[in-house]
Design a protein around this nucleic acid. Structure first.
Lengths: 358, 358
DNA sequence: ATGAAAGCGCTAACAT
DNA sequence: ATGTTAGCGCTTTCAT
């Protein structure tokens, strides 16, 4: 039977309500016997402090928001979001925070639901899409926030991300090392940070190894299946011997496009993907790919957010997480007898996450 | 710049704060010109009412909880939970409710997090597992709740479920109609309602068609892969010609067990599954199975909960949703030329959901 | 170490 | 139609 208040407990314990409050909040300035008495009453009655009243006073609710400006269906279907979510949920559990979910592709209705006063101590924003309006609204509402996963606009905001440039650099270098010379790329959307960074890494790798950058071998796409299919077809006449594809999902499309043109992967054309999500291993050829620590990623975003809430967010914090190159079949390393092992060999970047300058 | 209150708005608009409150809450007793004036100020200032204060007064937070007594990993991996979740999330969006997520397999820590006062207007509990303690805690805390998905303890509680008995009855009848006579079953855990109900439907179908119930043909399992594998092996010496398996995941295990014994599905032994989740169609033989409207299911649970919150929960409400028998390859209907069509033919129970007596 | 009292921002009688 | 007022349950000075 709850609905009892501090006053009820105070009466039962024969003390004032301030004392009960102190006990509940573990204030050391309470004598041991009084504390025991109060605690006993609390346990017997099952008293639970009223959160609304508490947050009204303290201006803090212990609730963190997870904002995903996407369709509900997308969230529960796309393995990227699922893993990101898993990480954030686990982190909230670990820190005893309540997690509120805001999933809606329409910013118009999403924004007021999130900013609607007082509810939230802070939010994690998940999306690769442009979300300038949302972020501006968050700033205006003074809600602390961290952007997780492919942030679009990063100036002055705190975020957690993969080091996309460095990862795509490694992927491309891997292909160079295997002896390929006409290395193409199928990119993500170039107006997204992740898409652009992965292209930059690709270019930089070619430059560093003295290979020419051939615009015909750069085929822009959009992280989606059809876009990648078309992009792959476009590449064929230019006879690449390898392709770095900016996501596993797109890599699968590319495999299809190539095989329709009679090109086998990796015999006729090698492939490296990005993500290491289920599409990478759903069917042969198993994809050599860049593994992102996505769960970790969601986890870190929450921890950063909590830190921001507790210690102020004047200085934006930014973390880049490391990745792994997972070598499987599509790059042809095994074919060439160059794979380090039988199973999926893993080559690490830097094991620990690296902080990046402000 | 938020952090302004009713009083600030009132001053700026030259009215009292009750008037502003009335405008915000769409009370008709406000003259048009005053309303306009206040609304203007609200828009200009970007005022948003403080939720904590509001819920302290009204005893209502507009937050619904989604309680899932499972591992976080399970939630984000098991397609059943994913779909259930999708439905609840969509319903919360549609009703402009904030959704708070509580995912934790340990009831010890889960319960206080959920009941911790005042937060929640109500919760949807998702689980097939025994959750007596959780439910008792909810009752004690006077938090309205609805159980979604295979509730264990149903006395006096409101819930949404599939009509498991009727569905398994249909599945079994389908096998009888196809001419099978030694029809076995691999069950779910018999201490769960869903597991038991599916067994009951199976038995009832055999009885109704004058077939004997042979205990040797009833092989208990637990909705898990290994359990089902063993259960299937156990069945083989008794030479069933068909099996009704209480979940698709288990059906896949059974296919494996049979094929290892040289039995082909459906040529040597027919199979009907349950769920119509991805495992049903991931590889041949495509499973004939019972499709549950799981998303709908989560959606209905939320709507029921809202109704409970608004109109009192003295009378527990209980809804059984209809299912569909999806005919694919594993039952052998096509083999026998008895399938209604080429694609997956669908036979309906009753299209609309049916309310079940109190 | 404990109690008294003020007030967080809001809504809902109750007045007018 | 609008204003006045009294709390909702809690934390937090300020006294003692």
């Amino acid at each position: 039977m709850p609905n009892l208040t501090l006053i009820d407990v105070a009466k039962l314990a024969g003390v004032s309500r301030s004392t009960v409050s102190r006990v509940v909040n573990e204030d050391p300035n309470v004598s041991d016997d009084v504390r025991d008495r109060v605690l006993t009453v609390i346990h017997q009655t099952g008293y639970q402090p009223n959160m609304a009243a508490r947050s009204l006073r303290t201006k803090s609710s212990n609730i963190l928001g997870l904002v995903i400006p996407e369709n509900v269906r997308t969230l529960y279907t796309d393995p990227f979001f699922l893993q990101l979510n898993q990480g954030t949920t686990q982190a909230c559990n670990a820190h005893d925070k309540t997690l509120a979910l805001f999933v809606e592709s329409n910013e118009e209705t999403l924004i007021p639901r999130v900013t609607r006063g007082g509810h939230l101590d802070g939010v994690v924003v998940q999306s690769g899409r442009a979300n300038g309006r949302l972020i501006r609204a968050l700033v205006a509402a003074k809600i602390p926030f961290v952007v997780a996963g492919r942030p679009h606009n990063t100036n002055g905001t705190s975020y957690v991300d993969i080091d996309n440039t460095s990862a795509s650099y490694s992927a491309t270098i891997h292909l160079v090392r295997l002896g390929y010379r006409r290395i193409a790329t199928i990119t993500g959307p170039l107006d997204e940070v992740a898409g652009m960074d992965r292209l930059i890494g690709y270019k930089r790798a070619l430059q560093d190894r003295g290979l020419p950058i051939d615009e015909d071998l750069i085929s822009p796409a959009d992280f989606r299946e059809i876009g990648a299919y078309i992009a792959a077809k476009r590449l064929i006449p230019h006879r690449p011997d390898a392709v770095f594809v900016a996501s596993d999902l797109m890599a699968r499309s590319a495999v299809r496009a190539f095989s329709e043109a009679g090109l086998r992967v990796p015999e006729d054309i090698a492939l490296v993907g990005f993500d290491d999500l289920p599409p990478a291993v759903v069917e042969p050829p198993l994809l050599t790919t860049i593994r992102q620590p996505i769960i970790e990623f969601g986890y870190q975003a929450v921890e950063m957010l909590i830190d921001l809430i507790e210690h102020g967010q004047d200085i934006p914090r930014q973390i880049l997480l490391s990745y792994e190159l997972v070598i499987r079949d599509s790059c042809g390393a095994k074919l060439k007898g160059l794979a380090p092992g039988t199973g999926s060999a893993i080559s690490n970047n830097s094991r620990s996450s690296q902080h990046v300058g402000l």
